[in-house]
């Protein structure tokens, strides 16, 4: 069983995230980057399976600038067996469609029985990538899973949407995405960190994948305007002296909020 986990290098959510007002792109220099928490959970699903299935192979794949190396290293230190890093100048500012095309080409080249992704990345929060990949690869998808059971020829789980909870199952090969209802990722051990340095690591360019980022070939989604909203100013803070509930009610009524 070959399981590929897609890991994204994202701005740490604990810091302020900033957009460049000229380009509309995330400013990588403005905040520290980390392996997205949701992808750590995706990796945990794969590693938990591998813990009891010695023939399972777990590959971490990321499309990101060179500076994302620590993110892939972390995935290896947590226990992934190998990593693939897609890096290319041409991918700077890539939109979702190009990202999906490139990641699908990478997955086709690497080979997989199961692809696991996060349901929503914390920076893009687009949540469309897993389905895009499944379509490019012509395989089934099962998204937003809050439980996952992996078998030899199928993957199944609980899929929660805004209107229903469903039991779904997909024949392998398949793409699944998981939600934060699944457990946190494990911490890398010291042994894991040392072992990570010796694990197979492949770096691929667009040319290696036999594709390009030519904006004339396919349409792109681009940003046409970006503006920062003014920060919110704090109002009044009072300390309860026995009447704060009354004052809360008065505030609501005076502001016609109740």
């Amino acid at each position: 069983m070959k399981i590929v986990v897609l890991v994204k290098d994202v701005p740490d959510t604990w810091g302020e995230r900033t957009l460049d007002l000229e380009t509309g792109l995330a400013r990588r220099d403005a905040s520290e980057h980390v392996l997205d928490e949701i992808d750590e959970r995706a990796l945990e699903v794969a590693l938990t399976f591998a813990d009891t299935h010695p023939d399972a192979e777990v590959v971490a794949v990321s499309m990101a600038p060179e500076s994302a190396l620590p993110t892939l290293r972390k995935a290896l230190a947590m226990g992934a067996h190998s990593a693939v890093h897609v890096v290319d100048e041409g991918l700077h500012g890539a939109d979702l469609s190009l990202t999906a095309e490139v990641l699908a080409a990478t997955l086709a080249r690497t080979g997989f029985d199961l692809v696991i992704t996060g349901n929503l990345s914390t920076d893009g929060a687009s949540g469309v990538l897993p389905a895009m990949l499944a379509e490019h690869l012509r395989v089934a998808h099962a998204t937003s899973l809050s439980t996952v059971e992996i078998e030899d020829a199928a993957v199944s789980g609980t899929r929660t949407t805004e209107t229903a909870t469903a039991r779904v199952s997909a024949p392998l090969p398949a793409v699944i995405s998981i939600t934060e209802a699944l457990p946190d990722g494990r911490f890398p051990t010291f042994k894991g960190i040392l072992a990570a340095k010796k694990k197979p690591f492949e770096t691929l360019s667009l040319a290696d994948l036999g594709t390009d980022a030519d904006p004339a070939r396919t349409p792109w989604s681009i940003m046409t305007a970006v503006a920062a909203r003014p920060a919110r100013a704090a109002g009044t803070t009072i300390v309860d002296e026995g009447d704060a509930g009354e004052r809360l009610a008065v505030f609501l009524l005076e502001n016609r909020l109740a």
């Binding site: 469609s97 699908a104 929060a125």
Partner: peptide
């Protein structure tokens, strides 16, 4: 809709027609 089902349909459809997507 930017719902779970809407996102899945948008993703597959955009990939099939190779169209750009604007999300959320």
């Amino acid at each position: 809709s930017h719902s779970v089902d809407g996102r899945d349909a948008a993703g597959r459809f955009a990939a099939r027609r190779r169209l750009p997507v604007a999300v959320d």
